[in-house]
């Protein structure tokens, strides 16, 4: 059986909102180390994944490895019934075909329970090797959202150029072109003002062209984290990571566009 109590429903709500438009259904893999998932979009261009470590739950119990097939549209609708500050308890009894979600209000005076039907999903699994990236950019997630939104008004794709100076996002379209340069700033710490600067750690300058449609989907994870890490190497898929506090992360991999 699985029983996992997450102190704040808002975390699960935000996670589901940030993947539901990219993936319609996927297996949640549960083990004694936590709950994870990975799935590609239908066109095999983007991979979404997340991990919530067992220590992010209190308590967490998973007796054996489970693969629970979930339809994201259903889970999203059910999670809308939870208050942001509700406690959510995820429960699965062995050999059942449903997953139970219990929402408890902060004062424990309102307890709601929803069951979601599980699916039998035969999904493809991508083996992503542990790799060292040539360039690691860390920047404000809200800044990242703004840049993707702004450049979408110009073109369908963005070129990300990372150099020692900083990181530049450029788009070109039929009506013109636009670019935003973020210079490296001294500290990426919040420094109590909620402002996250930009840092670029690099072995080599990297230049990649990516679809803005996908990047705009990834920005739905921005409410989970003040910062986003963009890990890039020339010519291979980019990894975007949004940390979920210190209990896990959401990662997206996006295949770059290739020059003919």
């Amino acid at each position: 059986m699985l029983e996992a109590r997450l102190p704040q429903a808002s975390i699960l709500k935000k996670i589901v909102e940030s993947v539901k438009d990219l993936v319609s259904q996927a297996n949640f893999d549960c083990s004694d180390s936590g709950i994870s998932f990975q799935a590609m979009d239908e066109s095999n261009i983007a991979l979404s994944s997340f991990l919530l470590r067992a220590d992010g739950f209190d308590p967490y119990r998973c007796d054996r490895n489970l693969s629970l097939g979930i339809k994201f549209a259903s889970l999203s609708k059910i999670l809308k019934c939870a208050g942001n500050d509700d406690v959510v308890i995820i429960r699965y009894m062995d050999d059942a075909d449903i997953l139970s979600l219990v929402f408890e209000s902060p004062n424990n005076e309102r307890i709601s329970e929803f069951d979601i039907k599980l699916l039998d999903i035969d999904s493809e699994y991508l083996s992503i090797p542990d790799q060292e990236f040539e360039c690691k950019v860390k920047m404000s997630s809200s800044e990242f959202s703004r840049i993707c939104r702004d450049l979408m008004t110009i073109g369908a794709s963005v070129v990300i150029d990372a150099t020692k100076e900083g990181v530049k996002f450029s788009a070109t379209g039929d009506d013109g072109s636009g670019s935003v340069l973020l210079k490296q700033s001294g500290s990426i710490d919040n420094e109590g003002r909620g402002v996250v600067g930009t840092s670029v750690e690099m072995v080599e300058p990297v230049s990649l062209e990516l679809s803005l449609k996908y990047l705009n989907n990834f920005t739905k994870a921005a409410p989970l984290s003040d910062s986003v890490a963009i890990n890039m190497s020339n010519g291979i898929p980019v990894m975007f990571q949004f940390d979920v506090g210190d209990i896990g992360y959401i990662r997206y991999f996006l295949a770059p566009q290739i020059k003919d």
Binding site: N44, I45, E124, S127, P129, S211, A255, P256
Partner: peptide, 14 residues
């Protein structure tokens, strides 16, 4: 002109 790459051309699918 550029063409959209696919993840399965970079990673092993199982």
């Amino acid at each position: 002109q550029s063409q959209q790459g696919r993840l399965d051309s970079f990673f092993k699918v199982s």
